[in-house]
């Protein structure tokens, strides 16, 4: 396969950046998208050009480090992570446009690499159960209905890649935030801090400059882990009932 790649290049956060066009020939259908970029980078290096920087690590769809906005979609045409996207999803002669995630809260670091530490700060605001190591009850002390545990697991599968933000026309982080709020609101262990958690995490999400949800459902459609927007509804519920009834002024 021979492909034309239109890739966003930006030296650093301060640089304005722009697109550069490369030709990738000898692309095999069995390559993953990132392997195709590896080959391009080796060619660029041999020519003495700076290789294209992009985030990636586990390359098995679970660490959430890879990103890339490919042909107008986060993680490209399939509902998967970019590292699990293979070149058989493209056809010979195609032009592929590759951009970084775009959001005020995800500033570009270099080329296709963005800073997603806003997500860490949202979790730090309350995405945990405040228990210290040791001194906890036996694991089987509180039975949890299987359906509840399964629902919590559905939400807990979020890999924090940020595709929801990238896909959302408002760059909203509600799917990410709601996945954690939901997981802990569903489980008995999360009840103690339930109200404060919802309030604090939403406040942090807003402080980071993410947009508001307009229920387009794009996040759910693009989420590589299939996190459902029912979680956003649950977060809304959690938040409204928390602000109405908590002691926090």
């Amino acid at each position: 396969m021979k492909l034309t790649l239109k890739i966003w290049r930006q030296k650093n956060a301060a640089d304005k950046g722009g697109f550069a066009t490369y030709v990738a020939d000898h692309v095999s259908k069995d390559m993953s998208f990132l392997e195709m970029l590896d080959v391009l980078n080796d060619q660029l290096t041999e020519k003495g050009e700076d290789p294209v920087h992009f985030d990636h690590d586990c390359r098995e769809g679970i660490c959430g480090m890879c990103s890339l906005y490919i042909n107008g979609k986060p993680h490209g045409p399939q509902q998967t992570t970019t590292c699990q996207l293979h070149m058989r999803s493209f056809s010979d002669g195609e032009t592929i446009t590759i951009e970084p995630w775009r959001a005020k809260a995800f500033p570009v670091v270099k080329d296709l690499v963005v800073n997603r530490s806003a997500f860490d700060r949202i979790i730090q605001a309350g995405g945990y159960v405040s228990v210290n190591t040791g001194g906890v009850p036996d694991a089987n002390e509180i039975p949890i209905p299987k359906t509840v545990a399964d629902l919590a697991m559905d939400a807990a599968q979020c890999i924090g890649c940020g595709a929801c933000v990238a896909a959302c026309k408002n760059a909203s982080a509600m799917l990410f935030t709601s996945a954690k709020v939901s997981q802990l609101a569903l489980l008995p262990q999360g009840q103690v801090e339930r109200k404060t958690r919802a309030e604090k995490m939403v406040a942090q999400m807003d402080a980071e400059g993410f947009g508001a949800c307009t229920n387009t459902g794009a996040c759910e459609a693009e989420c590589p882990k299939g996190i459902s927007i029912t979680n956003i509804a649950r977060m809304n519920r959690e938040y409204f009932s928390a602000v109405a009834s908590s002691d926090n002024m």
Partner: peptide, 22 residues
Amino acid sequence: VKIIDQCVAQGVPFAREYGGLL
């Protein structure tokens, strides 16, 4: 054995049986 207790307390959603136990 203590690891499992700790993780459950943190809200790790381990697989469960219909009776609600792990």
